[in-house]
């Protein structure tokens, strides 16, 4: 059996080489599909990355009532816990901002007239204590803001509704478009591979009929074609990975200059990317071969070629 296995693998490789023009065409088609698919996935990963970054940035400022922040009896932890207990508030993203810090941050935006403020001394700080609060689900933004406003300790909430809405819109569009693009490309690439292998199969119809006539089992006939398909897939996977990695690393530096979020670091996903490309390549090649040869094997005829 091992003899046969070695022989069949060798046959598959030999076939891939002797039909090198067809092999090259199949690899080319598969590379195009994989590069497109890989790019779509990377764009999606980057948008998600930017979204995560923006979400972190997209926090509301919850200002406390003077009566609360002015009283000696109030505890920062108590108020923080009240805020954290509001549904949809991300408990890991609730940060206390003392009024001094808020004031300094505000003052740093001005470069003139600071002398007057200085002259006013401690009384100049009219800001109350505040909390920087992030949400878990941006789609429930309005309801959460409303709930926060209803808390007794809260004076007001500084928010940016439009910004939040736009973010949510982008995220939804990216998800829908991404899924459609990847799905469509997957169908197209499978269709193309199946047809390319079918063409090879047509050329080798004689060979298959001879194999059948001498009593080859389905597995024996399928194996060289499977090896050929997997070889094509493997080659396409490696080439597409190299191409995408190269393009991405060049694009990443350009992205970093435009977007403050920066590109998703290649090193963090390089292994997954390589495995995904090889997996997709091999699976497409193998599936293309099996689907195409299935028809020829199901039929018991064709032995005498008439």
């Amino acid at each position: 059996m091992f003899n046969n296995f070695k022989y069949l693998v060798r046959e598959g490789l030999r076939n891939a080489w002797s039909n090198r023009l067809m092999t090259l065409a199949s690899v080319g088609v598969l590379v195009c599909c994989l590069v497109l698919m890989g790019s779509a996935v990377l764009v999606s990963v980057n948008i998600s990355h930017a979204m995560t970054w923006l979400k972190g940035e997209n926090v509301v400022m919850v200002f406390l009532k003077d009566a609360v922040s002015g009283s000696d009896s109030y505890s920062v932890d108590d108020v923080a816990n009240q805020i954290k207990s509001v549904d949809n508030v991300d408990p890991n993203n609730v940060e206390f901002v003392p009024k001094e810090e808020g004031f300094n941050a505000l003052m740093s935006r001005f470069d003139k007239g600071l002398e007057i403020i200085d002259a006013l001394g401690d009384t100049a700080n009219i800001l109350p204590d505040a909390f920087r609060v992030g949400f878990k689900d941006q789609s429930r933004y309005d309801a959460t803001v409303e709930q926060l406003k209803n808390l007794d300790v809260v004076y007001t909430v500084r928010e940016n509704r439009e910004y939040a809405k736009r973010l949510e819109g982008i995220r939804k569009t990216v998800t829908v478009v991404g899924v459609w693009i990847v799905g469509l490309l997957l169908v197209v690439s499978l269709f193309i591979i199946t047809n390319t292998v079918k063409l090879t199969m047509y050329v080798r119809k004689l060979e298959i009929s001879i194999m059948k006539s001498v009593g080859a089992t389905d597995w024996f006939i399928r194996m060289p074609f499977l090896v050929e398909g997997v070889t094509i897939g493997l080659a396409a996977g490696i080439i597409s990975f190299a191409l995408v990695a190269y393009i991405y690393s060049s694009a990443a530096s350009a992205i970093s200059q435009v977007m403050s979020a920066g590109a998703y670091p290649l090193s963090a996903i390089i292994l997954q990317l390589l495995l995904a490309f090889l997996g997709c390549g091999i699976a497409s090649g193998a599936m293309g071969s099996l689907v195409s040869i299935g028809k020829y094997l199901k039929d018991d005829g064709g032995v005498s070629g008439e």
């Binding site: 059948k212 006539s213 001498v214 009593g215 080859a216 089992t217 389905d218 024996f220 018991d300 032995v303």
Partner: peptide, 9 residues
């Protein structure tokens, strides 16, 4: 279908 190759041999 499975027996056919063995028969043809």
């Amino acid at each position: 279908h499975k027996d056919i190759p063995y028969y043809r041999r």
